[in-house]
Design a protein around this nucleic acid. Structure first.
Length: 494
RNA sequence: UCCUCCUUAGCUCAGUUGGUUAGAGCAUCUGACUGUUAAUCAGAGGGUCCCCCGUUCAAGUCGGGGAGGGGGAGCCA
């Protein structure tokens, strides 16, 4: 569309950019003695002769050799760290050690200059904190290039898993009027002039005059809408951005994050757990198979980072080892009540090493307890089920004991809760009873209650925080490093 | 939001008991060298010591307040 005839001609004749060969292919291929065109960015330029060129397809750089005396000094001067080049030449067996092939350059064209005095990235290690401040440039480092390629593969695997199983990808709204889900503080969405919003006679804001005619927010979860679709399409999932206005300042919370929420009709809690476990194993396996190089790079990076830590804080397994362990072993499943028993009888509790000692049934587990179960006691992912109803959401199905609900949380080593899910309460009277107890308006959620009025069936679902999954797979300890442009309290740069 | 630590050159950091002109490595620039692998060697340039107020003859250093960042906790995914 809109391409002029001369432009198409230029493409066909190799003047434009889409006839380049990716460096990943050249290196994987290993064959030699043929002409190619590559395009990429300079990582280092050594000895006025050797260019380490990276095009984003892999962390492996192509060694481009500019033979001495063959290139104009004015061109060589512009081959600086960060500069973009188009190089045509011949792939030959490398004369030096460190790489099998290299590109003997015939023609070097500077596509874009990069002022070395001002370019912030240097051919050396940078701290993650510094790179966070220049998040617009951090894609150009090996670590972040690997992270975002892995993030892509994980996202692709999410869709592939559900698609192969016949799930429907459902787009739930980003802007919602519902504020009764109770999943967290919400961001308000308004078109009002904030210095002069429409007001009622009593001085309160008159949202009837606002864009949507009512108060609206950014979504905290697509679950309720997911349930609506599941009551017709049976198996659906959402995968989209979610927003929480909580003032959470931790390495595992974002104000804007991506969540995957499958919702399945004719599922009970056990079906739900089976699906969640299979799902996590599948996407990790898929990524191990398709991004082995990047995971090896990240594994090595993590190993070097671990060396800086004192012995007792180091993890027992390397990154890839850990991922392989997860896909080859069953997750440990136990009830909240059993977990409390284990924690209560643990030496840790008896010796009062917990900051919060376990005494009574019914209290929520603190992260130190979750970490103990996952990292010390079972040493593998754990699925905790049947929590006390008082610490869980209104829509979870009430168990026969009258005290617990059919909830399940999956806890992963190093990051804690990665999945939260439940069998949903499909019995109308039980659900409204619970909503009344928890002061949740049945009027506002009348549309939701229709699913319990017209052909309700047992159904279940879960939510998985995508960035936490990316953290787990890449071994990155701060969630701000696994999303391109993190949004956190007091920070929304770029 | 709470606890705790940090903020000195482009980056990573040192800076003694408060005392003259604030240092190092890397990066950058200039030159040398030329099959290098974060090349090497020599030289040069580069500072709002986070901000404000205070104590003092004198503050990078001490005190108070603020901002930003790290780690931990809560809330959660």
């Amino acid at each position: 569309m809109g391409l002029s005839v001369s432009c198409i001609f230029a493409f066909q004749n190799g003047y434009m950019f889409n006839n380049r060969t990716r460096i990943k292919e050249l290196i994987a291929n290993e064959s030699v003695n043929y002409e190619v065109i590559v395009m990429g960015w300079v990582r280092t330029f050594r000895n006025n002769q050797f260019i380490a060129l990276n095009d984003g397809s892999t962390n492996n750089n192509l060694q481009v050799v500019a033979e001495l005396g063959k290139f104009d000094e004015s061109v060589l001067k512009r081959i600086t760290t960060g500069a973009a080049l188009k190089v045509s030449g011949e792939i030959i067996p490398s004369l030096g050690k460190g790489q099998k092939i290299e590109l003997k350059a015939h023609l070097i064209e500077i596509l874009g200059d990069s002022d070395a005095e001002k370019y912030p990235l240097q051919p050396k290690k940078h701290s993650l904190e510094f790179l966070r401040e220049i998040a617009h440039l951090r894609f150009r480092t090996n670590t972040f290039a690997a992270i975002f390629r892995v993030r892509h593969t994980l996202a692709f695997a999410v869709h592939k898993f559900f698609n192969d199983k016949g799930f429907v990808y459902l787009h739930t709204p980003i802007i919602t009027a519902s504020d009764a889900e109770g999943a967290g503080e919400m961001f308000h969405v308004t078109n009002f002039d904030l210095t002069n919003p429409a007001k009622n006679e009593d001085g309160s804001i008159n949202y009837k005059e606002d864009f949507f005619g009512k108060a609206t927010n950014l979504t905290v979860s697509g679950q309720l809408e997911g349930e609506l679709a599941a009551m017709a399409l049976a198996d659906v999932y959402t995968f989209g951005p979610t927003f929480r206005a909580e003032n959470s300042n931790t390495a595992r919370h974002l104000a804007e994050f991506w969540m995957i929420e499958p919702e399945m009709a004719f599922y009970d809690l056990e079906d739900n757990m089976n699906l969640a476990e299979e799902f996590i194993k599948y996407i990790i396996k898929y990524t191990l198979e398709n991004n082995k190089d990047d995971l090896e790079f990240l594994s090595q990076r993590l190993a070097e980072e671990e060396k800086q830590k004192p012995q007792h804080e180091r993890s027992e397994m390397g990154l890839i080892e850990k991922l392989e362990f997860v896909i080859n072993n069953n997750f440990e499943r136990l009830t909240y009540t059993e977990a409390i028993q284990i924690l209560k009888e643990s030496n840790h509790n008896k010796k009062k090493k917990f900051q919060y000692l376990i005494e009574d049934w019914g209290v929520d587990l603190q992260s130190e307890h979750e970490r103990y179960l996952v990292e010390k006691h079972f040493k593998k992912p754990v699925i905790l089920t049947d929590y006390p109803k008082n610490i869980k959401a209104f829509y979870m199905r009430q168990n026969e004991d009258g005290k617990t609900v059919a909830a399940m949380d999956i806890l992963a080593p190093g990051i804690g809760e990665i999945v939260g899910g439940s069998q949903r309460e499909e019995r109308l009277n039980k659900l409204t009873e619970r909503m009344n107890e928890m002061h949740i308006s049945t009027e506002e959620l009348d549309w939701y209650l229709d699913t319990r009025r017209f052909g309700p069936v047992p159904h279940a679902g879960f939510g998985l925080g995508f960035e936490r999954l990316v953290q787990f797979v890449t071994g990155m300890s701060n969630i701000r490093d696994v999303i391109p442009f993190p949004r956190t309290p007091k920070s929304a740069e770029f």
